[in-house]
């Protein structure tokens, strides 16, 4: 029965079933289908399970259980209390954010204050080691300066080549560290320049080898002409 009449009838049945009970056109459609016994039978067969579906289902009263369970979970709160809970949550969240912000600021400006364990810091360690080495070198230079100063006092009187006055009274010497690290970085070439203020100005260069290997001061070193002495930079030693 795949004829157009059958299809029309099926469409009419579906339209009747789709239409709300209150739809006024439903009555007209029902009137039309009543004239066709076959269509009426089809409609009844379609309605039968749907009518069964509409039959009310006995449902247990779950309200007591539900309210009890909601109460037990302590989440069903009156609006006033809910405000406190919500406010508390917001306050807690704001507090946490504040703590995080303070910690971030402290860590940014005083990183050591927030360290729980010492962190390896290669750059800082290298800088610190370099500073320690420099201090040690400065100490070494100081002691060498004193030694050289003593040796200068022993220079023979009247030695014009060296330009020292016999009558010269040991005057205060000043020393400058020109460099503490050589070009290669591994070798410590310390150059001291002595400048004597009286009676005749003369400058000297003293070379000091690193790691305690002190090069003996030779006359060649002492005989460096003033013109070759470069201006010193660095720490002034007493």
């Amino acid at each position: 029965m795949n004829d157009p009449k059958r299809q029309d009838m099926e469409a009419l049945i579906q339209a009747i079933l789709d239409a709300p009970v209150t739809d006024p056109t439903r009555r007209e459609m029902l009137g039309a289908i009543r004239r066709d016994p076959g269509a009426m039978s089809e409609l009844q067969r379609s309605v039968s399970p749907l009518a069964e579906l509409r039959r009310p289902v006995a449902s247990p009263d779950l309200s007591g259980r539900i309210l009890h369970a909601a109460d037990r979970r302590r989440r069903f709160l009156p609006r006033k209390l809910r405000r406190f809970v919500d406010g508390g949550r917001i306050a807690t969240a704001a507090g946490l954010l504040l703590v995080v912000a303070v910690l971030a600021t402290v860590q940014r400006h005083w990183p050591e204050a927030t360290e729980l364990v010492a962190q390896p810091r290669p750059l800082t360690d290298a800088t610190r080691a370099f500073a320690d080495d420099t201090t040690a070198s400065a100490g070494l230079i100081l002691s060498e300066t004193r030694r050289v100063r003593g040796s200068l006092l022993a220079v023979p009187h009247g030695d014009e080549d060296l330009g020292w006055s016999q009558a010269a009274t040991p005057a205060p010497l000043e020393a400058w560290v020109l460099s503490t690290v050589g070009p290669e970085g591994s070798r410590l070439d310390t150059v001291l320049t002595y400048e004597r203020s009286a009676p005749r100005e003369r400058s000297l260069r003293v070379y000091i080898a690193p790691s305690g290997e002190r090069a003996p001061i030779t006359p060649d070193m002492l005989a460096v002409p003033t013109s070759q002495v470069e201006p010193g930079v660095g720490d002034t030693l007493p």
């Binding site: 779950l62 309200s63 069903f76 709160l77």
Partner: peptide
């Protein structure tokens, strides 16, 4: 607002249809 009777009435009004 915390009225348990109203909550119970709401449940009773809808439980049958949801249950079905």
């Amino acid at each position: 607002a915390g009225d348990q009777q109203a909550a119970a009435a709401l449940i009773k009004a809808h439980q049958a249809s949801v249950y079905a």
